[in-house]
Write a protein that binds this DNA or RNA. Structure first.
Length: 424
RNA sequence: GGAGGCGUCGCCUAGUCCGGUUUAUGGCGCCCGCCUGCUAAGCGGGUUGAGGGUAAUCCCCUCUCGCGGGUUCAAAUCCCGCCGCCUCCGCCA
């Protein structure tokens, strides 16, 4: 939720922000009107209610005719109060709805436009030249099959398309990645968390996933529960309805959870392999900090993501995502995209978002500072999304004989230097 | 899943049976001040959060006793539903 004061004081800024995302600014006027009628409804209710309370206090001491007359008057007022109260509730709801539908105001630095209007910030490492090395790289599906690491056929048999089993070294690889990610997180001062992946509507709504992204969210039939698409959701709701100690900020969490995505609207895209799946596991960094520190923390999150990709010896680039592709909550977003050899292009592996106060305002998380109670910003960034990371590692570090070299940093966790194909 | 108990402003707690003089009691902690070689003790005051009015951190008002309804002129208090916690039983990784 955007700052209501910003909307009231500088609506043109919000209109401009809508335009930058390629959205209509009608909601701005709707919200402003709703705010005005909400405030007059509040004034009306409070006036009636005040009168009711004043007269009500006289009743216990009144007697006879005076008492009867008071009762008659307050009875009328009670009805008016009730009407005014429901009018106020309705106005409040309209105002909330309008406000909730407005996405976070994109950062000035965020490029305008849609998915293709990103700005390339940096390219790290050089994609491997397999032609120069004299062999044609295998894709992760074939590598996964030969290594006995990924079983997409049985994934489809058991769960349907876009599911998989990680087996043998595949399973070991995921666990090693989790450990490597969690070790880095711990060293960087994060608290490790295993987060629930089923959440109540409040958490989903508060993180902005029930807006335009709702089609991508699994809902448990017959229950008011959703499967999360990222542990950003439980972690943002973790401190909901709390007033944090401002001096204790930043609070940094590294949360492991499975992630579930319907992938509605991506029919035909990445149908093979495990690039795009309905479920994967992920270690996500999630930070609560002050609004003033948020931008600097965003850079730090990006730094930790890059450090992790560096450890895996992957070639990647960093992009500044355009406003129209930010999602509801983010004010700015950096994606790290790793080079996938058989696709001959960069694919998103990690993503760091600065959601400023957007989520905490929806989830009612604040902090007590020296100056008083104030807003808290949240940020999230992928440390390691298992499936795509496995794809990048297998394809990037494959060798001519079908084996895969294990990046140095991963060896202690995996207990081997090379992944060998199964015989036969 | 069954039975019972409980949910009050950071923590503990009074009030709930018998609705109104409660601006929700008191203690602890915390903050400010006084006193005091220093500290402690003592004394005085303050201390839930949100929203509205307003130029305003002054002030005034409204809401807030787990949440949501209802009864009533009036609800922490009565009624209904829900949620959470605890105890016992059942089931179970």
């Amino acid at each position: 939720m955007i700052d209501p004061r910003l909307l009231r004081d500088d609506p043109d800024r919000v209109r401009a922000a809508q335009a930058k995302r390629g959205l209509s600014d009608d909601v701005v006027d709707v919200a402003l009107r709703a705010d005005a009628s909400r405030r007059s409804a509040i004034a009306e209710f409070e006036e009636k209610r005040g009168e009711q309370k004043r007269l009500g206090k006289l009743i216990p001491r009144a007697e006879g005719d005076e008492r009867a007359e008071l009762l008659a008057r307050t009875k009328v007022i009670a009805g008016e109060v009730k009407a005014a109260e429901s009018a106020q509730a309705e106005a409040e709801r309209a105002w909330q709805d309008a406000l909730m539908s407005i996405p976070n105001v994109a950062a000035d630095q965020a490029p305008a436009g849609g998915e293709d209007d990103f700005v390339l910030l940096e390219t790290v490492g050089t994609p491997r030249d397999f032609a120069a090395e004299g062999f044609t790289p295998l894709d992760h599906i074939e590598l996964g099959r030969r290594l006995g690491a990924i079983d997409v056929e049985r994934g489809a048999k058991v769960s349907g398309s876009r599911f998989y089993f990680l087996t043998g070294v595949g399973a070991e690889l995921e666990l090693a990645l989790v450990n490597l990610a969690m070790a880095q997180a711990r060293e960087s001062g994060f608290t490790q968390v295993i987060a629930p992946s089923l959440v109540k509507p409040r958490a989903m709504e508060g993180t902005g996933f029930l807006g335009q992204a709702a089609d991508d969210v699994y809902r448990i039939e017959g229950q008011d529960l959703y499967l999360v698409g990222t542990s950003e959701v439980p972690m943002a709701a973790y401190h909901s309805d709390e007033i944090l100690d401002g001096a204790a900020l930043p609070l940094r969490y590294a949360a492991f959870s499975p992630c579930f995505r319907k992938e509605a609207g991506s029919h035909g895209k990445d149908t093979r392999g495990i690039i795009r799946v309905h479920w994967f596991d992920k270690v996500e960094m999630f930070v609560y900090t002050t609004p003033e520190e948020a931008a600097a923390e965003h850079e730090r999150l990006l730094g930790w993501e890059k450090a992790f990709l560096d450890k895996l010896e992957l070639a990647y680039r960093v992009i500044d995502v355009a406003a129209g592709d930010l999602g509801l909550s983010a004010q700015r977003k950096f994606d790290c995209e790793a080079w996938i050899p058989t696709q001959e292009r960069y694919r998103e592996l990690t993503s760091a978002s600065n959601c400023t106060e957007f989520q905490t305002r929806r989830l009612d998380t604040r902090a007590r500072y020296d100056e008083g109670i104030g807003a808290v910003a949240t940020l999230n960034g992928t440390l390691c999304a298992m499936t795509r990371t496995i794809v990048a590692i297998l394809e990037t570090h494959q060798q001519a004989d079908g084996s895969v070299r294990v990046p140095e940093a991963l060896r202690p966790w995996l207990g081997r230097d090379v992944l060998e194909p199964l015989r036969g």
